[in-house]
């Protein structure tokens, strides 16, 4: 189920950004996710202030060479994955 566009994602308790060997990471209970480029841009915006819609608009601007539809689709997929990992909570 894709996240709602007007919800505001934020990192769940026990999930935070970290760094190791100049590589940004999303640290989570007993696992970690490497973040680069777009995935970092997304996770940095999961701050409880940006709505899903705002994150999509921001990244469509940053990655203006990519198809806007595809950007939206990828972001929704990525957020759904982080939700499944229990790394995100969504406030309405």
């Amino acid at each position: 189920m894709p996240p709602e566009l007007n919800s505001r994602p934020h990192l769940a308790p026990g999930c935070r950004l970290g760094e190791s060997n100049q590589q940004r990471m999303l640290l989570m209970p007993v696992r970690a996710l490497r973040l680069n480029g777009p995935s970092l841009e997304i996770v940095e915006r999961c701050d409880g202030h940006h709505t899903v819609q705002q994150i999509i608009l921001d990244l469509q601007k940053i990655y203006s060479k990519a198809g806007p539809q595809k950007v939206e689709q990828d972001i929704l997929g990525y957020l759904a994955l982080l939700q499944k990992e229990r790394a995100l909570d969504f406030e309405l």
Binding site: V30, L33, S39, D74, Y78
Partner: peptide, 16 residues
């Protein structure tokens, strides 16, 4: 063009 595809290589499973 896709801007990102979730890549399994980026998941670090760190327990046994």
């Amino acid at each position: 063009m896709a801007i990102l595809l979730f890549c399994k290589r980026n998941v670090l499973w760190i327990s046994s």
